[in-house]
Write a protein that binds this DNA or RNA. Sequence first.
DNA 1: TTACTTTACACAATCGATTGTGTCAAATTG
DNA 2: CAATTTGACACAATCGATTGTGTAAAGTAA
Lengths: 372, 372
Amino acid sequence: MAPRKKPEPDPKGTSPVSMADLARELGVSLTTISRALSDHHSIGPAMKQKVLKLSKKYNYQPNRLASALRKGKSQLLGIVVPYIEGRFFPSVVHGIETAARKAGYNVIICQSNEDVAQERRNLDTLLSAQVAGILVSLSRTTHDFQHFEKVRSRGLPLVFFDRILEGDKVNAVVLDDQEGGYISTRHLLSQGCRRIAHLAGPQHLNIYKNRRQGYFDALREAGLPEDESLIVYTDMAQQSGAEGMRQLLAAANPPDGVFGAGDYCALGAMQEARRQGLRVPEDVAICGFSNETFTVVTEPTITTIDQRCEEMGQAAVRLLLEVIETNGSAYTPRQVVLRPELVVRGSSTRFLDAGAGPVAAPTVESADPADA
Amino acid sequence: MAPRKKPEPDPKGTSPVSMADLARELGVSLTTISRALSDHHSIGPAMKQKVLKLSKKYNYQPNRLASALRKGKSQLLGIVVPYIEGRFFPSVVHGIETAARKAGYNVIICQSNEDVAQERRNLDTLLSAQVAGILVSLSRTTHDFQHFEKVRSRGLPLVFFDRILEGDKVNAVVLDDQEGGYISTRHLLSQGCRRIAHLAGPQHLNIYKNRRQGYFDALREAGLPEDESLIVYTDMAQQSGAEGMRQLLAAANPPDGVFGAGDYCALGAMQEARRQGLRVPEDVAICGFSNETFTVVTEPTITTIDQRCEEMGQAAVRLLLEVIETNGSAYTPRQVVLRPELVVRGSSTRFLDAGAGPVAAPTVESADPADA
DNA sequence: TTACTTTACACAATCGATTGTGTCAAATTG
DNA sequence: CAATTTGACACAATCGATTGTGTAAAGTAA
């Protein structure tokens, strides 16, 4: 191996200072440096000061690799998401990164591209990177937890968020979709709607089933019947929402309110209504779901349900850190359910309803279009 | 220290297999295992096979920390972005992660939150994580490269993207905004517009200055005069775009085309025009800039300039890897300039113009609203 | 003053993988 | 057949930080 000389401060500037350098300079042992820096009790205050001063002077940066190797744990958290696009995942990741950093962790990101095989590889990568814990939102093609066994058997803390598999005892953070459907529908009721339609999503997906259930709950509570003719099943796309609306409006007794299971189909519905000369919200009030970015730029702006993306990220990190800290001691898997938030905007505001919750409030942190 | 026993396969499942385990099992030296796995020539094919088989059997995962520590370089790339929100940065990060993974690297993400101090801390973190290279898009409060000296002095490859500081010899990937303004304006001309207005952005920012310049270039090329009365300076917000449009339409000779320096202000302009009873694109054609997500859901959809977010990420990684590979050997900083792409949509399509470029094409990879 | 605790630090092993240098035997060459 | 090359593997140092144990000296209690 090439011998490496270490002249005192830093000749080419290429070599980062190590604890050994500090030790040599101070004429003390490596141990002393290490313990001084980690504020160990067996180091005198005077020595601590000296070490600290010197480390500042040479701008000492601990080598995390070495530290992690020795301790068997790094200060890294692994994230596996289907992809980093759209509104949802970037926001959650944003929340995760922020919370993680606050706790002294860095995050390493992996995309599964909706592919189980890739997801499996991601896990292997994270394992070999010796992360301290893993946060996962499952790919669409994931139907079992098999490949997570490896993680679990290593005793690595694991937390799922948003996309989880039902029926397994795992740590998870999810949104209460049923509550979302409920408050959305209640809001429409509070605006005077009496015939509220629902643009539903594919019912084999829990989130959509739950949103619909919340819708039913609110209707029942208000003493209104469940009218299947007021429910249109869509694929959640804008186009599909428009078609659904056309269908609803063609009926004998058209709705005066629409709760869309997503913002895209709600938008489609709103556009169709206006094309047919209806006023929104006067003739028909509309609520969406997800608080997509575009909901603040349409005319009128769209009332929707915010999914608390950032909070989800933060909650996931909190949960993960808890598991990390209780280090293996028979931690019981816990599920955190986030309460969705109604964001009232123009598409449903027939009159200024006191206590209708926060109005508008842009949710994207930097709506500043000057980014790029 | 607590002594650690290592029974053969894996008792509690908690201990990952190391090369030492394999060596013991095969009765060979650690060296042999290491070299067999890295396909070193001094290991016989028979032995290589045996080692490989055993490593599969025990599902051996190399400890990257150890490897990186020894080699002095990890397989990690650091990313520093202002934040992970909106359309632009997530997409770039997506591109970066994809390209990096393809090259066998993982990415670790940091947000500066538009704060130089945080940016500085991010760099320190990445340095101590021993990343192999760093990708940076500067925070808005960054006005000098001072804190990057530390990185440079360590000989760490560094590539900037999108947000860079002018006049410094650095590796960077940026978008050709001038070209964007040019093709956008040319497109409007090709649609028969003759009085093309421009909703300009703050001119102290290069990107906006360049977009305006491209606009001028196209006008000049078409033999049209630079008419300052056709330029309105906005803060890029939707509201501001609407006001600009109002102003333009109130003038004696209103425009028949508008090139907005951003999608938000273009949207505002379009809405204002329609409010005043004008038809888009028939009476006034409109182009935006950035290919924001909402541009595909408006009525009509908005013609815009795509900033090649993903390509930018990929290009940045390519450049970084180049620098990493030419490892310090006096690499001359290089700038990659990406060509923006015109995305023709409804707001400017007066007649189907042959050769007008790709039509529509949703750019978000998963427009599937079922994410969450 | 003797015995016992602290205080303050050093030694040396260790985490897991990498790599320059040996070593020994088989293969090739003259 | 002796001499040299090549093949196949082991030794041991190393990356940088952590930590159990050891050991002086100083402080305290009896």
